[in-house]
Design a protein around this nucleic acid. Sequence first.
DNA 1: AACATTACCGTTAACGTTTACAGTTACAAT
DNA 2: ATTGTAACTGTAAACGTTAACGGTAATGTT
Lengths: 341, 341
Amino acid sequence: MATIKDIARLSGYSIGTVSRVINHHPDVSEKARKDIEAVIASENYKPNSNAVQLKNTGCSPVTVLVKGSRNVFFESILEDMQKVFRENGEEVSVAFLDEDANEVEAAIQLCVQRRPKGLIFLGGNLNYFEESFERIEVPAVLVTGDAEELPFENLSSVTTDDTKGARDAIEYLVSQGHERIGIIGGSLDTDLGQISDFRLSGALEVFNRRKMNFDMDRDFEPSKFSLESGYEAARRLLKKAPDITAIFAIGDMIVLGAIRGIVDSGKKVPDDISVMGYDGIEYTRYAVPRIATVRQDIHELAVRSVEDLLWRLSYHRVAQHFIIDHEIIPGESVKNIREEK
Amino acid sequence: MATIKDIARLSGYSIGTVSRVINHHPDVSEKARKDIEAVIASENYKPNSNAVQLKNTGCSPVTVLVKGSRNVFFESILEDMQKVFRENGEEVSVAFLDEDANEVEAAIQLCVQRRPKGLIFLGGNLNYFEESFERIEVPAVLVTGDAEELPFENLSSVTTDDTKGARDAIEYLVSQGHERIGIIGGSLDTDLGQISDFRLSGALEVFNRRKMNFDMDRDFEPSKFSLESGYEAARRLLKKAPDITAIFAIGDMIVLGAIRGIVDSGKKVPDDISVMGYDGIEYTRYAVPRIATVRQDIHELAVRSVEDLLWRLSYHRVAQHFIIDHEIIPGESVKNIREEK
DNA sequence: AACATTACCGTTAACGTTTACAGTTACAAT
DNA sequence: ATTGTAACTGTAAACGTTAACGGTAATGTT
């Protein structure tokens, strides 16, 4: 494996000059640049990034911390993020965390060991940030959570308005004639609980305002963001609240599981039970029936967060907070039952 | 950020002794060990991995190269791999490659820059390996491809028998009375084409042996491993070959898209068209109808590959080649049409 | 002609580690 | 009392790189 020394030897210049060529410093003659670049190319030389990073303290690539990886939604965002990094010629490193890990503590560890130049949190619990984010010194972005209220200068956030999304979802169900709506949502003891909270509270707002019949004990069932959990929740919910005509599940994976649960309970979607999801993963457009959902702009979410971080790294900009649009996607999984009455 | 120097200063020992404590070397007194460990704990010190890796040439963590990331199947394997690495106290680094990238060239680049101690290829094209794998010096594992025939001493492989899996799938469809079977598979110009090849040839074997009516132009339609591609392929296939009673799609994502395509062509699954997939992703068990598939043991695939690599790294074992079992999972998506005749 | 300036290039110290080697003790054996 | 040995501990070189600094030669200025 060639090192900068070899390049220096082979090209007849000193390692200093080689380094300058590599880093596009001005003080180098046209000839030297050409010569050295030729050797670099012929030797297929790339600087050893460990050495580079050791020298320039704190510049290993941006790390994306993904919390709870079995999550199609996150995977899609991650993929788009990768693309943006690549387009900007930036390396990325990805670390996966358990769903119940403390991502901020994990990030602190990661910082002392690897000195990344920036951090992106894909999923995260605001409480952990409040507790200990102050100990993180590099620019960071929280995706899927709003850090506007937090007092940190180096933490941007990119998210959608979960409360409003849920309100819109319920309004949509109501517009289709549904009055008894059940909810399958996150339990508060999971770390993604905050998102669930927001979505749940959005739904409750509508119920309240419209004075609809909704009882937390009867019409709500907790669930993780997984197929299995959605399945179980749906079965339990249908037993507790047999008169509901629609279910709003706060994640598309939950809906997918829930549909099977509904079918196994002997009911039909959407004839007996309408269902609506949240997130807008690709498969909702191909499912039979096509699933109504609150689509988040995944691409925008990814692009904004990466670009914000990159800009801040390059130009020392200040942290910002973005709210990305969402969109109600009607679907065959919701039946219009208005005319029936 | 504390360095080894700080620990030395604070504990009153030299950095040599501190380093010995960190690396569990024997030549250090009980007292020194205690003292130094106390300081390390109180300072929350972790060695800077860039420095460590620079010194011990070639020991940045194992890197998993994932090719074509929008692939639920790979994501599941990746997740299981992460778990095994974590259990063994090993770090992992993940890099995502485009579906049409040359993963071996990418790995070579990665080696000169980062000096990983090992490599896992998740997906890959045997041709690229044949061409240039010789230039890779670290132990590697190819997952989802059989490297047995390749002359490389440091390349293990873990895969399932795709040909046999496809044979078994077709036999299953035949056992359910299907005689006119269409296939949706990968086109040869994609890099995952080899897997497609094997699966396709397995299917053809059965058609030949049983002298079944199958015409490549009419009864086969190429497709990438994606929902969209499966959708389009199904629609085209149904137009070309309206008399088929079953479709074997060589990937579960393809099936998921294909089902929508079939429905949009005005047919029903499984009443008009039976479908069967390959891979065994979790959702096949929750889909309505439940999807018959060739389930690969994802967990085993992940565990074997990681453990093989870790063993080889620790004990300098020789590369091995594993064939992981598969299993035919019957499902509601295949209708038994035997009794109808 | 003398000097200043520019443009280029080489030398070297540092980044935080690990490890071979060279001490320094303490204690047992002679 | 001397030597040998064992058990530790410190020192310093090295890993591959960057960047501050100093040097040299060529060119421009007076």
